[in-house]
Amino acid sequence: MNPIQEYFYRIDEPERSTLLFLRKMILESDPDHITETFSFGLPFFKYKKKMLCYLYYSKKYKRHYISFYHGDRIHYPELIQDGRKKFKILLIDMDKDLPVSFIMNIIDDIKQYI
């Protein structure tokens, strides 16, 4: 297994399936320009080889989240800055439907700053 597969393998269900679906949606949203790397022990998504977002787990909120680079430049009340300088996070509620179109809108907004 490669490190990205190992990262997801260590996550319990149903969170694993939700995050794998989110991963697939991000990668398929722009397959010519969005790539995935493994940095700092996390799956990172890059747009034209520059940082776009990553997935992680918040011990503080006890939830998985997607963190957006250049989040400081976009304004969505659903995003949390929480002391970060360049990033904002979107907490993922595993008990609700994944807001895929909302996430894709955020990614499209961030692309203009890359």
Score class of each variant (00 low, 15 high):
Arg16Phe: 08
Arg16Ala: 12
Ser17Leu: 10
Ser17Ile: 03
Leu19Trp: 05
Leu20Asn: 07
Phe21Ser: 12
Leu22Met: 10
Leu22Glu: 04
Leu22Gln: 06
Leu22Ile: 12
Arg23Ser: 09
Arg23Val: 01
Lys24Thr: 14
Met25Cys: 09
Met25Ser: 09
Ile26Met: 04
Ile26Asp: 07
Leu27Ala: 07
Leu27Met: 12
Leu27Tyr: 09
Glu28Asn: 13
Glu28His: 10
Ser29Phe: 13
Ser29Asn: 12
Asp30Leu: 09
Asp30Phe: 14
Asp30Ala: 12
Asp30Met: 07
Pro31Asn: 04
Asp32Pro: 01
Asp32Ile: 12
Asp32Arg: 11
Asp32Leu: 09
Asp32Glu: 14
His33Ser: 12
Ile34Phe: 14
Ile34Val: 12
Thr35Glu: 15
Thr35Gly: 08
Glu36Lys: 10
Glu36His: 11
Thr37Trp: 08
Thr37Gly: 04
Thr37Ile: 08
Ser39Gly: 05
Ser39Cys: 03
Ser39Met: 12
Phe40Leu: 06
Phe40Val: 03
Gly41Ile: 00
Gly41Thr: 01
Pro43Ile: 03
Pro43Gly: 01
Phe44Val: 00
Phe45Pro: 06
Phe45Ile: 03
Lys46Ile: 05
Lys46Phe: 09
Lys46Asp: 15
Tyr47Trp: 08
Met51Tyr: 11
Met51Ser: 11
Leu52Glu: 09
Leu52Ala: 10
Leu52Cys: 09
Leu52Pro: 11
Leu52Val: 12
Cys53Asn: 04
Cys53Met: 00
Cys53Ser: 06
Cys53Thr: 02
Tyr54Pro: 04
Leu55Trp: 03
Leu55Ile: 13
Tyr56Ser: 13
Tyr57Cys: 01
Ser58Lys: 04
Ser58Trp: 04
Ser58Cys: 00
Lys59Asn: 14
Lys59Asp: 11
Lys60Trp: 07
Tyr61Leu: 05
Lys62Leu: 10
Lys62Gln: 15
Arg63Thr: 13
Arg63Gln: 15
His64Met: 00
His64Gly: 07
His64Ala: 01
His64Pro: 02
Tyr65Asn: 07
Tyr65Cys: 05
Ser67Arg: 03
